[in-house]
Design a protein around this nucleic acid. Structure first.
Lengths: 247, 247
DNA sequence: CGGTTCGTTGATTCGTGTCAAAAACCGTGG
DNA sequence: CCACGGTTTTTGACACGAATCAACGAACCG
């Protein structure tokens, strides 16, 4: 599962100081709301860190005294039941903000899916920044609103869609998200997660996910011959499925 | 289904002007962050309105140019699929804020479940207030964060819990929420919604909800002889179920 | 190479959904 | 007060979609 994506950028170098000014995801993340003065303030409190695949970033219930902005790679966020059942709530990637859900403690756990790079900011420092720069708080509110809308869309998926509809919706959501940062081949989506991860995100088992992928392949909706990537062959077909009209 | 709750407060009177200062839910809603000056500003842009049971407040996709604060009664918010399948995302009540999810358009529809009273605020006026009073913006961000945490908890429920676990979690969540405003009998929760509504909230059919209620009654976990209200008989039993350890 | 993880596919089970019917409840008006 | 139609709830019989259990091959790795 060696992702070509990950090999081109050097995820292993971990500078001691952040260079927000030249950061590739400045246009994406909350940082985009900041002018140069504000950027200096942010830079002074940011600590760049890395995590290797499988490594935990924080656990559900941990004190929320650090927040993160993803600058490279993929993660998964999830909640657990007592007996180990897992619900993945998202696959954060470049530009995403971690630490919005919950007040005193993290509302979910987070683990690196691939080698990942992040900017770590102390909660106190973040609150300080939010107090000093009103635009930043506005941006964070917009972000929270967007996250909330996505979470409710996922509720519709989990509560009312069939397995085929879920997988179709998942693929299309990835297409939408990949658009955010250019450099992805049109019609392709990165799938750095396992079938088990996808299942835990969609409320299905890994076997069901695998079967639906096979069916979609047979029906010429997608192509998965390339590893870690899916090619969308029939977007309209997937759209129809995801919307829930065409069985 | 005549709720005693609804009869004590006069929901039919619709004053022309808001009286935020003496509003009963001042301590609950976002209003609690406001001092008297700010309250005056709010009061001048608020329009009190009512909706009768079943009436729509807004539809999914409507332009988001009004937001609402519930001051009486119950509503339901929901998303629909093309063929009519429905996912209810919440049952807003006194103190709840409507209009957080989505940017340009409403991310869900909203209907009155019972006779309901609300404070309506123009989006422009709200944005204006948010600009003038930083505390209000902070309060709204906290609200959005809380909503997000709840939405993710619901994802865990919809994706990974059994029907019994879902109903147990639902009842306990109502207990938690009812605590927010006093005046509710301890150990009782209001159930102003139908079995169908509960099903559409929990990702189940109304028949399954009914069966689980019957089972819980047989097992002496709850009592539903009083209409529109459930009495919690064995909170620990429900907690164990909701957490997902005890079968 | 052996060990491990991941993906695929098949056989079977099981929890909910679906369909149907009756009972309980509601407000209304005679 | 009771009869009425409409809605909601309950319960049963049955069907079906996804989960479970199991086997196998492919890719990866030390």
């Amino acid at each position: 599962m060696a992702l070509a994506l990950l090999k081109v950028c050097n995820l292993h170098a971990t500078p001691r100081l952040a260079d927000c000014r030249h950061c590739a995801m400045r246009s994406l993340a909350i940082c985009s709301a900041l002018d140069l003065v504000e950027l200096d303030a942010l830079e002074s409190v940011v600590l760049p860190i890395t995590r290797h695949a499988g490594q935990s970033l924080f656990h559900e219930g941990d004190a929320l005294d650090q927040v993160f902005i993803v600058t490279g790679g993929y993660l998964r966020t999830f909640k657990l039941l007592a007996d180990g059942r897992r619900q993945i709530t998202g696959f954060p990637t470049v530009g995403d903000f971690l630490g919005l859900a919950g007040k005193e403690t993290h509302g979910f756990g987070a683990e690196a899916l691939t080698q990942a790079r992040l900017c770590q900011v102390k909660r106190r420092d973040m609150d300080d920044l939010l107090g000093r720069f009103p635009d930043l708080r506005k941006r964070l509110l917009d972000l929270a609103r967007h996250e909330l809308a996505l979470a409710q869309e996922q509720q519709l998926l989990l509560g009312r869609k069939t397995s085929r509809e879920r997988v179709a919706s998942f693929l299309l959501a990835l297409v939408e998200r990949d658009k955010r940062n250019p450099g992805n081949r049109a019609g392709f989506v990165a799938l750095p997660m396992t079938r088990g991860d996808i299942g835990d995100y969609l409320g299905l088992t890994l076997e069901t996910v695998s079967r639906v992928f096979s069916a979609f392949r047979r029906e010429r909706l997608i192509d998965t011959s390339e590893d870690g990537v899916a090619r969308i062959l029939d977007r309209d077909g997937l759209e129809a499925l995801a919307a829930g009209d065409g069985g």
